[in-house]
Each structure stands twice: as structure tokens, then as C-alpha cells.
Deep mutational scan, measured.
Amino acid sequence: MSRESDVEAQQSHGSSACSQPHGSVTQSQGSSSQSQGISSSSTSTMPNSSQSSHSSSGTLSSLETVSTQELYSIPEDQEPEDQEPEEPTPAPWARLWALQDGFANLECVNDNYWFGRDKSCEYCFDEPLLKRTDKYRTYSKKHFRIFREVGPKNSYIAYIEDHSGNGTFVNTELVGKGKRRPLNNNSEIALSLSRNKVFVFFDLTVDDQSVYPKALRDEYIMSKTLGSGACGEVKLAFERKTCKKVAIKIISKRKFAIGSAREADPALNVETEIEILKKLNHPCIIKIKNFFDAEDYYIVLELMEGGELFDKVVGNKRLKEATCKLYFYQMLLAVQYLHENGIIHRDLKPENVLLSSQEEDCLIKITDFGHSKILGETSLMRTLCGTPTYLAPEVLVSVGTAGYNRAVDCWSLGVILFICLSGYPPFSEHRTQVSLKDQITSGKYNFIPEVWAEVSEKALDLVKKLLVVDPKARFTTEEALRHPWLQDEDMKRKFQDLLSEENESTALPQVL
């Protein structure tokens, strides 16, 4: 008996699950189920560990084997000379395990699969056993689809999209007709009724959600790893209520002995410091949205989908001078704002400069500016000194954290500008005749005249004003913003236009 009217009423009120309206889709043409990776026989039982391990490696599972009696060998002398080797079968990115008779397991190899009674669906509900069930008529011709799209860092995100009359449910929550939600590992998919569980979705590319604290899981769906560094790992996640993407940084307390840091400095109150950081608001710094204190720290951040500045300059790639100017102007505005709010970044580098898009002209935002507030000064500097390429001379020669101030950030900005303009770092371990530390503390950077011949004198002058060993003589952010190279009204107008595109209400910060 159909429950279409009941569920449609529920759909009209929406769902609290991570779902959002989605535009129309072009329906895929039908194809045989076997060619799409559906096993030839149905099963109602969950797999054992041996079955799972075989399939996850990209080899055929026991459900897909063919009797050897149906095959015969071709003698080598009868092999056609022009026969080309077969292409290897792509490894599946996800697996659906059937929970009921009449449904088959599915190895997801393609990027898009339609499910329903219509014969054009890649996964067609046409098993005779299924057709005899009382629920068969409640399934729509095109009930739902599972697909994946390219996300940040060229990774993939799996989604389920509801197109049914009676509802598609993920972990008992209604997706909603015309809406989608991301699928995470071990999600249970039910059709027409929330208790009519048909599939379990296994994402073969992500970790299980159960490793994360419950308070975090209640608000966010964790997904793929976006990156990792000395101070922690960053994962893509989704807000459950809105389906908006965020980035979540995970900082290990054990790695940084944060408990010991608190004992050594009783004034170090991470929760208080995070609340201060959350109040920071500038178009060129990453917004801190939320914070969870569990076995590790979880910092929920605004997501930038254009990648890191590092990706644009790695491998001796240089940027156009006009692009360097647009990016560097924004970096200076961001660091100036942090300094005005009493925050020294201490870890400025291309990896911590994020881009809003893949376009050459785009907004940038500074991230990882609050680590000293979370990890403690000593722990952070011990970590950073392991990779000193961007560290100021006074940091390398000081004991502990004494003896330096916000000028350290201006040195790091000078190193970043040098790399963007030239395509190579000013200080490098590859210069074996002088140690990296000695290069930095003496201010002897690697200047290649033929490379810098293409760079304007004004740009080079600003680099020199920032890479000054004496912090008292080094340019401040205010002085850098007043430098002739940055007195470019076309560049500032472009920045204002980019801000307006992102948010019509965002105004250009005042600069002296």
C-alpha cells in the first residue's frame, strides 16, 4: 500500500538533515546492470571481512566470479597478432551492500547512478522477487541517484539526491524531493519508509565518522582530508542543518603536550582565546566558526575552494607581477588587521594563504593565525623552527619566545613576496656552502639577476625593505602599504570589485 501522500506532506515541511535544493538533472540513458558494476546475484546478508577486503582492492568479489566451465583457453599460436591488451577495470570509489532480497550489490565505478523502476536507470528495480513485494509499487520510476562531484583539492564528494514520490531516507532522515545531501561511510539508505532499509553505503575513500566526538558529529558530517601540516590535519565537512561546506582543523593534544602547556602557563585558556579569535572579522582572514574541545581540538573554519598559494608557486613557478601585487596587498591588509588586534601570526607561508577560486584574479585569505593562542608560545615555536624557511632572523637566534615582536610577520611576508615574484625561495638548504640558518640570520638571500630583470624596481625595493635583518629597521605593514609599488588604483579597484562580488555589503578597509 502506498504512503505517498503521508511522505509528500513530510517532504513539504523539509528536513533537518544536511540537504539543499538542487537544479534539474539530465537523465542518464539506460545500460545493462552488469556493465555498471552490479553483481549478477542479489543478497540479503552483509559481507564478511574477506569479501570486503577483496573488493576494496579493486579485484572481483566472490559475488562477481564466473564459473571456469564457461571459459576456455586460447593457445598462444592462435592469439590474433593485432589484439590489444584489455584496459584494467577501474577501482570502485564506493560500494552499496544490499540489505534485502531482490536488490543486488553495487560497485560504484562510474560517477553517476540512477536507481528506480524505469529501465533507463543504471540500477533498475526489475528483479522478479522484488516485483512480488508489497513495497515495489511505492518505488518511483526514478527514485534517487548517487553521484560524486569534484571538491576541494581535486578530491571527490559523494551525494545522494531524492527524486521520489514516497521519499528517500539516509539514516532515517528524509532527504526531500529535489534535494541532495552528502553521503558518508556506513550510511543506511531506506526507500519509501524510513524503516525500509535497502542499502548500506560504503565510501571507500573516507574514514568512519565514529572516531570523532559526538558533539562534533551532531553538527557536522566529516568527509575527506584536505591537507595536513606540522600543526594538524584539515578535513572537509558539512553543516548538517545547511549542507554548507566547512573546513575542520584537528590539532592533536598529545603531539603538542597541550596539557603540560596549560600547567606551565595557567593563564592559557584555550576556550577564552578561541572566543576572541571567533570575533575577528576581516575579508582577508579565514573566519573561525566553531570550536570543540575533546581528546583533540577541532576548529571549524570557513572553507576556501581555490587551494593554497603554495600550489601556484611550487615547482619554480612565478606569478605575474600584477597578480603578485593583488595578492600581496590583501596579505598586508590581513596581517595589519591581526597586528591591530594584538595577534602575531608567526607562521606566514604560502600554505597559509588560501585562494577563493581558481581564477588568477581572486580574493585571498590568511589562515592559521591563532596557533600560539591554542598551542602555547613554546610549543608552537619548537614546531616552526623545524622548517625555518620563512622564519625571521630574530626568531632563530632567540631562546624560547623572548626578543621578537610583530616584525617577524613582515619578514615572512618579504619571503613570500620574493617567491611569488621570482619563482624560487630566497633562502634554501640546497645552497650547501652556507647553512639555512646562517643565510637567514645574515640576510644573504639568493639573488639571480636574469630572473629579477623581469621584475620592476619598485617591487624589488619593497622586497629589500622587508628582508632587513634588524627588526627595528624592517618595514611595518603600514609602511609597506604606503610603498610606491602598491599605489596602484587599478589594483585596488579590482580588489574592491572582487569584494563586491563576494558580498555587496563588504567595504574596502581604510588604508593610510
Rank of each mutant, 00 (worst) to 15 (best):
R132K: 12
A158F: 06
G227Y: 00
R217T: 05
G37A: 08
Q209P: 15
L96R: 01
I221E: 00
I248A: 02
E219P: 13
N184M: 06
I221K: 02
Q11S: 06
Y159F: 08
G176N: 00
R3P: 11
V25I: 09
I146G: 04
S252P: 12
S140N: 04
C108E: 04
K119E: 07
P92T: 14
G151S: 09
T43Q: 13
D82S: 06
K131P: 13
G116N: 00
S50L: 06
Q69A: 00
T272R: 14
G37F: 15
S31P: 08
N184I: 14
D126K: 13
S15G: 10
D203C: 13
S140W: 08
R195P: 03
A17M: 10
F256T: 06
P182G: 02
F238R: 01
I74V: 07
V270E: 13
A230G: 09
K235I: 00
E81H: 15
R148V: 13
S252W: 10
L268W: 11
S164W: 00
P90C: 08
S42P: 09
Y159C: 15
S31Q: 08
S32K: 07
T26F: 13
T133R: 04
K119H: 11
S155H: 15
I221M: 07
D82C: 10
L236T: 07
K119D: 10
R132D: 08
S42F: 07
D207L: 02
S31D: 09
S53K: 03
V211L: 03
D118F: 04
L191Y: 02
V270C: 09
C231F: 12
L193I: 08
D218Y: 06
V234D: 00
E8G: 11
Q83E: 15
S24M: 14
I157F: 06
Q27H: 09
Q36A: 12
A94W: 01
T272S: 04
A261N: 00
S41N: 10
I74C: 13
S164G: 13
S120D: 06
S187Y: 13
S192L: 03
A190F: 00
E233Q: 14
D77H: 08
L193A: 00
S35L: 05
Q11C: 14
P90S: 07
S39Q: 11
W114Y: 09
S41P: 13
S223P: 02
N185W: 12
G178V: 13
E149K: 10
C121H: 06
C18H: 10
C121M: 08
A104R: 09
T133Q: 08
V25A: 10
S57R: 03
K245Y: 06
R195Y: 11
T45Q: 10
A9S: 03
E219M: 07
S56I: 04
K135F: 13
R145A: 02
L174A: 12
F144M: 13
F202H: 01
